[in-house]
């Protein structure tokens, strides 16, 4: 049931439900590879997701995944929430952007219990602070780690190595 550009009506419905209440929160709407992506302001994200969860027209009641993305050029950390309506089989991706130095956002655990570990993972790798999270600890990395390893400023390899020329072998 993947819809192409000519048949946007079900997606339009989601957009109109969102705009009805939260017009001023929407930054932009994209459609990369036929996947509705809505960029939002970060302040009321949990409220918006709760609204999309409850609204009879959208019913986005399944959180497929949640992850962080670091954009070092914009000095931002983005959070991607991917929601799914099981009965109409529509998917939506919501993205918010947080400042790199102090990424703070409300927790989604109030809506989805499944967000618990996904948020812990995001905290672990990007240092995003989820306000009100019941148990915000590192999950995959060791507890005494002091960095957030998926941020772009931490290179994968030891930078003091001299036996390898990065000009030839990429970033």
């Amino acid at each position: 049931m993947e819809s192409n550009n000519t048949d946007l009506t079900p997606y339009d419905k989601i957009i109109s439900v969102l705009k009805e209440e939260y017009e001023e929160q929407v930054l932009s709407i994209e459609f990369p590879y036929n996947f509705l992506t809505i960029n939002l302001k970060s302040e009321r994200i949990v409220e918006i997701i709760q609204h999309l969860y409850n609204h009879p027209e959208t019913k986005l009641q399944y959180l497929t995944t949640l992850c962080g993305i670091h954009y070092p050029d914009q000095k931002q950390i983005a959070l991607m929430y991917q929601l799914h309506n099981m009965s109409t089989n529509l998917r939506v991706r919501l993205k918010i952007f947080l400042p790199e130095e102090k990424p703070v956002v409300k927790t989604l655990t109030s809506v989805f219990d499944g967000a618990n570990w996904m948020e812990r993972e995001t905290f672990d790798f990007y240092g995003v602070m989820f306000e009100g999270h019941p148990d915000l600890r590192r999950i995959l990395n060791v507890e005494d780690m002091i960095i957030f390893p998926l941020r772009k400023e931490y290179p994968l390899e030891d930078q003091t190595r001299e036996d390898k020329d990065n000009k030839m072998f990429g970033r």
């Binding site: 995944t65 992850c67 991607m80 219990d113 570990w117 990429g170 970033r171």
Partner: peptide
Amino acid sequence: GRTPFRLHFRRPCFIFYQA
């Protein structure tokens, strides 16, 4: 670029094991 900018795996085990 030659590598992904970001690649996230949605791993079903990781998600359901929290229950």
